[in-house]
């Protein structure tokens, strides 16, 4: 983790009272993850306890303690996607990448995560790759779709 950019983000968060979640989201935006090792420095800069920071960091699914792969594949597990048999999409993604939910491929290309609804229910089943929503995913298209990301 680049210390300089961590310090730069923290410098913008010396407000009273500090907003821990916003600070952590910004750190993650700048550095890709919020390392648990950075907790003491963050706590000191925000003038809160380390427990306050660690508590927020561990609470939110979208705050990540480690860098994800180059592409974050999120398979929608919302009801509408489940009704449209999105479980088959998830199974194909797992089989093709040979990883389980929460894991990263060995080449660092993909991290697989679940997501509970991307609001694309009428055009499901859905995948979210990085920031893009892909709709009407047919399980058979999954290998070609994933292979298009380098």
């Amino acid at each position: 983790m680049s210390r300089q950019s961590l310090a730069a983000v923290l410098a913008r968060h010396r407000t009273k009272p500090p907003n821990i979640l916003q600070a952590l989201l910004e750190i993650q935006g700048a550095l890709g993850a919020v390392s648990v090792r950075a907790v003491p420095e963050i706590a000191k800069a925000l003038d809160v306890t380390e427990a306050d920071v660690a508590g927020v960091l561990s609470y939110y699914p979208e705050l990540r303690p480690a860098q994800p792969g180059r592409h974050l594949i999120r398979v929608c597990l919302g009801e509408s996607c489940m009704a449209n048999h999105g479980a088959k999409v998830l199974a194909r993604v797992r089989a093709h990448l040979k990883i389980e939910v929460g894991e990263t491929t060995r080449d660092g290309r993909f991290t697989l995560a679940p997501i509970y609804c991307v609001g694309n229910c009428a055009v499901g089943p859905s995948l979210m790759v990085d920031g893009d929503v892909i709709g009407r995913v047919n399980p058979d298209q999954v290998p070609a779709l994933l292979d298009s990301y380098t």
């Binding site: 009272p17 979640l21 600070a23 989201l25 508590g55 609470y59 699914p61 979208e62 509970y116």
Partner: peptide, 25 residues
């Protein structure tokens, strides 16, 4: 605009306010 961090229960109004203040939702 304040963007959340993937917690469903933050749709409950008091959890939302906790989150908006930067704490656990």
């Amino acid at each position: 605009v304040f963007v959340g961090a993937g917690s469903y229960v933050c749709g409950e109004e008091t959890a939302l306010l906790e989150s908006l203040e930067g704490r656990r939702g």
